[in-house]
Simulated assay, not measured.
Amino acid sequence: MSTGATTTVEIDTTLFITVSGPPGCGATTLCERLSDAIGCPYVSGGDIFRELAEDRGLNLNQLTAEADADDEIDRAIDGRLQSIAEKWGTANKPFILESRLAGWIAGDRADLRIWLDAPEDVRLERIEDRIETEPEMRVREVSEAGRYESYYEIDIDEREFYDLQLNTARWGKEGVFQVIRAAIEEYDPDADTGAFPTPELDP
């Protein structure tokens, strides 16, 4: 039986990995653990959004409202993430990119695209200690989905191109990590007969 305890793990890989999912899905926890195990950097779109809010003296809800009114904010963030994806997509070094649109932004440059999710009540419980409130989270999810559709004609619920989709409520943090670890370590490019193509995104 698993005790939920974490152990020191090293993962030898050169994969460019994207991790996406709604707030409270466990993406940050997974990325931090993977980054430590692989020994590689990762960039979070949420961190960039929060930094932008802080720079402007706004809370997340206020910046979300501004983003609804002005596409410059989203396009600037997504353009920065795309530049990062382009850089690491040709580096042949391990890297992790995390954001709701990371899989779309990285596209075929990514070696492994992951979507994490969990039932809404589980996700709400996970964000209880965050600055962002439950109503703000709901507003942000709906607002982001609408903006993605408006700006890029993206349906965030279209997920067939993700290589892995995982309900993180079914495993503990260590279990989620071990599932993803196994996928990374068992990946054999010679046995890879093809990923689903990702439509091009133009921020």
Rank of each mutant, 00 (worst) to 15 (best):
residue 147 R to W: 04
residue 146 G to F: 02
residue 143 S to E: 01
residue 77 I to L: 12
residue 150 S to R: 01
residue 109 R to H: 12
residue 155 D to S: 01
residue 137 M to W: 02
residue 160 E to A: 15
residue 198 T to Q: 09
residue 161 F to D: 08
residue 91 A to R: 10
residue 139 V to G: 07
residue 97 L to M: 02
residue 131 I to V: 14
residue 100 R to E: 03
residue 87 K to M: 13
residue 138 R to F: 02
residue 171 W to A: 10
residue 104 W to C: 04
residue 168 T to F: 05
residue 94 P to Y: 07
residue 138 R to W: 05
residue 149 E to S: 09
residue 82 Q to A: 14
residue 132 E to W: 09
residue 94 P to S: 04
residue 185 E to C: 09
residue 165 Q to E: 13
residue 173 K to M: 14
residue 75 R to H: 09
residue 130 R to L: 10
residue 117 D to E: 11
residue 71 D to M: 03
residue 137 M to A: 10
residue 156 I to D: 05
residue 161 F to R: 01
residue 133 T to F: 05
residue 179 V to M: 07
residue 147 R to F: 03
residue 94 P to K: 03
residue 162 Y to N: 02
residue 171 W to F: 15
residue 145 A to T: 10
residue 128 E to M: 05
residue 168 T to H: 01
residue 99 S to H: 02
residue 72 E to A: 10
residue 78 D to E: 09
residue 172 G to N: 08
residue 166 L to P: 00
residue 196 F to K: 11
residue 84 I to M: 08
residue 181 R to I: 14
residue 177 F to Y: 03
residue 175 G to F: 02
residue 153 E to P: 06
residue 166 L to V: 03
residue 174 E to D: 15
residue 88 W to D: 13
residue 169 A to N: 14
residue 149 E to I: 08
residue 101 L to K: 00
residue 163 D to E: 15
residue 91 A to S: 12
residue 143 S to D: 00
residue 197 P to D: 13
residue 156 I to S: 02
residue 134 E to A: 06
residue 82 Q to I: 11
residue 190 D to I: 14
residue 122 V to M: 02
residue 91 A to I: 14
residue 85 A to N: 14
residue 157 D to R: 04
residue 123 R to H: 07
residue 76 A to F: 12
residue 131 I to F: 14
residue 90 T to Q: 10
residue 176 V to Y: 06
residue 89 G to H: 07
residue 111 D to S: 11
residue 151 Y to S: 03
residue 122 V to H: 00
residue 118 A to Y: 03
residue 190 D to R: 02
residue 88 W to M: 06
residue 159 R to W: 10
residue 88 W to H: 12
residue 164 L to G: 03
residue 164 L to V: 15
residue 157 D to W: 08
residue 139 V to K: 07
residue 147 R to C: 05
residue 136 E to W: 01
residue 83 S to E: 12
residue 102 A to E: 07
residue 82 Q to L: 13
residue 105 I to C: 04
residue 171 W to V: 04
residue 82 Q to W: 09
residue 147 R to D: 04
residue 180 I to C: 09
residue 122 V to K: 00
residue 191 A to Y: 08
residue 84 I to D: 05
residue 120 E to S: 09
residue 162 Y to T: 06
residue 171 W to G: 13
residue 162 Y to V: 10
residue 91 A to K: 10
residue 86 E to L: 08
residue 177 F to D: 03
residue 101 L to R: 00
residue 199 P to K: 00
residue 70 D to C: 04
residue 127 I to Y: 03
residue 77 I to G: 01
residue 170 R to M: 13
residue 159 R to C: 10
residue 90 T to K: 14
residue 71 D to I: 05
residue 87 K to W: 15
residue 186 E to A: 11
residue 105 I to V: 09
residue 175 G to I: 00
residue 143 S to F: 06
residue 141 E to P: 10
residue 80 R to D: 14
residue 163 D to N: 13
residue 189 P to Y: 04
residue 133 T to N: 05
residue 184 I to N: 00
residue 158 E to D: 07
residue 72 E to F: 07
residue 165 Q to T: 12
residue 134 E to G: 08
residue 121 D to A: 08
residue 175 G to Q: 02
residue 174 E to S: 06
residue 180 I to T: 09
residue 116 L to Y: 12
residue 115 W to C: 12
